[in-house]
Design a protein around this nucleic acid. Structure first.
Lengths: 306, 306
DNA sequence: TTGTAAGCGTTATCAA
DNA sequence: TTGATAACGCTTACAA
């Protein structure tokens, strides 16, 4: 208790009495090597899936007395870079990035023994970088196989615009077709924005052109909901004329009518996992951490019942 | 540059070169009186309205180089208290609380010249506490008046369970009735959980008992959506037989069918305002800041068209 | 094992 | 006005 000013001592004693002693994170951060803060870089917290990931990550962080610095990038690479820089300046102990838009080498050059990085929804192999993602290809194949299994033969794919995940999405779809002896038409694959209007427009176009389509697999729930609207406008009943699958299992999925069949994306668990992984990487800086590929889960609702 | 180890100097020079010099927040916090961090206490980030507030607050915080420590309470008073304590231990420069569940005196005793508090969605008068809220009473009266204006006479109120805002909600409703020469029945007011199922159950009960009801005003959009389902089950068409109003203008409101009329709650702006207010309070600790009462905005959609 | 002291990067204070 | 230095609260390395 020596070497401390009496003013401070009084304040401390008061605090101890009132709320129990808690070491100062600031001082710990200054003195030690850890700041007990990590950075979380996301597109937009307003996005429900993101929010779930944030919550899962926060809960694990809280349990380990870590603080989380949140950065929204609006999916702009420049904002993402700035976010990363500011986080480095804050001496964070690690960074979690959701769906990075930066070149993988930029991230690789940033990652360090003292600054492990966990990348979610993207697969990057580099030292001190670990990734967590779902297997889009496998997930898509599972859905298409399911639709084949329920008697569909002509299945449309509403995929997103250019991105590594587009390739995986299409690959899963094609893989399902390649194992069956059914005719296939490249025109059944349409690219569009992953939004409500993107789904609406692409479904409209696809269904007008190919009347034989009986099922649609969308890249996101939003696209699927847009497709739903297109179907109703074209006088096609869901699921009787057209079966529809979304992706994400957003809250909307079970509220709309017909309720939407989808692939469940476990945001909360992904957040938890990301934080746990970061803690592990900090604990064993030189260990190798294999990428985590999460399994998916089909959620069958009205929009795909036969 | 003296008195600094060469190792550190090299690191600094490297950092300067690469990303420009940035003072250490940790050291600033230790030495100075400000830590450039604030605490944000919310129920659950997963809630869309909360997420919007968080985003608005974050954006202003970022602009002022402040960091935000997020704490989720799940609306548990004990968790809220723990969150506040941990934030105090982190030496935050201020705290923003959304819809606090704690006694106002607890907050009052915590607030300090060096720890201003902004309370959102609740009105508290105490030194170093400032509040931002919407006028629930006025908003409710506005909606009920609007319904009277479109010819409704028997309007049901789906309100929440015991809370100061319940009183305001009911008060606004009664005020609208009191200015008109129309019969009124206390039974048209039902209390329930603010959830989907709460709205569903209470609407079911109310409409079964009082067949003369032609409009429902719910405390949240979720309740309103639950009520929508109850109507469809009871064979009442919306809006032809029953008009329905929600509160919050959640994303769902414009997606469901029929689209939901509601009261817009400007989450993003509220978040911005809260952070700005906190900064002001820090700048002028002894100034008095009047509570901010935000105006609301009616959003008329299909569920209330006649 | 226990205790002492230096150091972390900044702010604030007090002399010069 | 400028410049040196103590203080902030903790960690860690080293000495007793």
């Amino acid at each position: 208790m020596d070497g401390i000013s009496s003013v401070t001592r009084d304040r401390v004693l008061l605090a101890v009495e009132e709320l129990g002693y808690r070491p100062s994170r600031l001082a710990q951060g200054m003195a030690g090597s850890r700041s007990f803060t990590i950075g979380l870089v996301i597109g937009d917290i307003t996005n429900h899936t993101n929010a779930e990931i944030v919550r899962g990550l926060q809960d694990v962080a809280d349990a380990h007395s870590y603080n989380v610095f949140l950065r929204n990038t609006d999916w702009e690479p420049s904002q993402e870079l700035e976010a990363l820089r500011s986080l480095v300046a804050e001496n964070v102990d690690g960074i979690v990035i959701l769906g990075s838009k930066l070149e993988s080498q930029v991230l690789a050059s940033l990652a360090d023994k003292n600054l492990p990085i966990v990348v979610v929804s993207r697969h990057i192999t580099a030292p001190y970088i670990s990734s967590i993602s779902t297997d889009v290809e496998k997930a898509t194949k599972t859905v298409v196989d399911y639709l084949f299994g329920t008697g569909h033969q002509v299945i449309g794919l509403l995929t997103r615009e250019g991105n590594l995940n587009t390739i995986r999405h299409v690959a899963g779809y094609l893989k399902a077709y390649s194992t069956r002896e059914v005719p296939f038409n490249k025109g059944w694959i349409v690219q569009a924005e992953t939004s409500l209007s993107g789904g609406y427009g692409s479904a409209h176009k696809l269904l007008s052109q190919y009347n034989e389509v009986t099922a649609l697999v969308a890249y996101t729930d939003m696209m699927a909901i847009g497709a739903l609207k297109a179907c109703s406008e074209l006088g096609k009943s869901v699921p009787d004329d057209i079966a529809i699958f979304g992706y994400g299992d957003s809250k909307l999925a079970s509220f709309i009518s017909p309720t939407l069949s989808t692939i469940r994306y476990k945001g909360y668990e992904i957040g938890q996992l990301a934080m746990e992984r970061l803690l592990d990487m900090q604990l064993y800086p030189d260990a190798t951490f294999p990428p985590v590929i999460l399994d998916i889960e089909l959620v069958i609702r009205e929009s795909s019942s036969r």
